[in-house]
């Protein structure tokens, strides 16, 4: 579904490349997380998968990016939008401002795609149900809370039924309840395994519990790619700035004291930690 080869990219008027040689392949229905320090290239990778790099931001790009059958470098962003959706971290700035109700906001993208009104209404209502916003259908988007606005952004993109959904730190501005609601929506979407999801996050606990596969970006390069637990355990000894959950750190401290076997793979979640410690 996604193939990236030799991707190098530099934003205009910068000297350092934001992405410095990425090779990556993602299958249909995979749930992939991307972590790394700020500035490592997570957002740039999201933009490269959705065409904003290079079309929106300009800059110099090498290599190839194929997403859902499109050659990203040769396809305008608006044409990609139907197949590859993007949700980013600021809930307020994703409200189009062109529509007065939540339902119409969700349908906005479908109107631009020329979908017939009947199908449009059905898909929009479905997206609202999937995001728990059906009670708010007649409200103005501007009266929603931050967490609700973020779910609205997800609904608006989901209604377009993209085959790939890219989310760039979608919960960074949300409170714990908002974060939980957002991940519940993603879990629902992932269940059918029809949509490929790529998600960048700092909240390692949430991410590790949700994705099958974790990528680590460091200084524009892909330095790790594998199951979340293994990758995060490896990251602990590396200068990648990925961080770790407290579960990982607690068991790491215990391991240093010899309370836990040397070869133990560090846990990421509570259940894994309890298993290791018992």
């Amino acid at each position: 579904m996604i193939t990236v080869s030799g991707l190098r990219y530099r934003y205009p008027e910068t000297d350092r490349p934001a992405l410095d040689g990425i090779d990556l392949s993602i299958e249909v229905g995979e749930l992939v997380g991307v972590v790394g320090a700020n500035g490592a290239g997570k957002s740039t990778l999201c933009y490269a998968l959705t065409g904003y790099v290079p079309h929106f931001f300009g800059g110099t790009m090498e290599g190839e990016v194929q997403v859902s059958g499109h050659d990203v470098r040769r396809t305008p962003v608006s044409d990609l939008a139907a197949d590859v959706g993007l949700v980013f971290h600021n809930p307020f700035n994703q409200i189009s401002g062109a529509r007065y109700t939540v339902l119409e906001e969700v349908a906005f993208g479908l109107e631009n795609l020329g979908v017939e009104p009947e199908a449009m209404r059905e898909r929009s209502l479905q997206a609202l149900r999937a995001t728990g916003l059906d009670d708010l259908a007649e409200r103005s988007p501007f009266t929603l809370s931050g967490g609700e606005q973020q779910r609205l952004a997800i609904a608006a993109v989901m209604a377009m039924q993209p085959r790939v959904l890219v989310l760039d730190e979608p919960t960074s501005q949300l409170d714990p309840a908002g974060t939980r609601a957002a991940f519940e929506v993603l879990r629902g979407l992932a269940r059918s395994r029809e949509t490929t999801i790529v998600l960048t996050e700092h909240k390692l606990g949430w991410l590790a519990a949700f994705v099958d596969r974790l990528l680590v970006l460091h200084a524009g390069r892909l330095v790790a790619d594998g199951p979340p637990r293994r990758v995060l355990a490896e990251a602990v000894d590396q200068p990648w700035g990925v961080g770790a959950t407290q579960f990982t750190r607690a068991v790491q401290a215990a391991r240093q004291r010899g309370l836990v076997a040397e070869g133990t793979i560090l846990p990421v979640t509570l259940d894994q930690a309890l298993e290791v410690l018992r």
Binding site: P176, G205, R257, L259, L274
Partner: peptide, 30 residues
Amino acid sequence: QVEPPELVQLALGLGWDTMVRTPEAFAAQL
């Protein structure tokens, strides 16, 4: 509408009565 810190979840999961505030304190208490 918030969840307890991870170290609290861990301590409670192990049946501990006293909470710890850092990973090092956790290891010491363990």
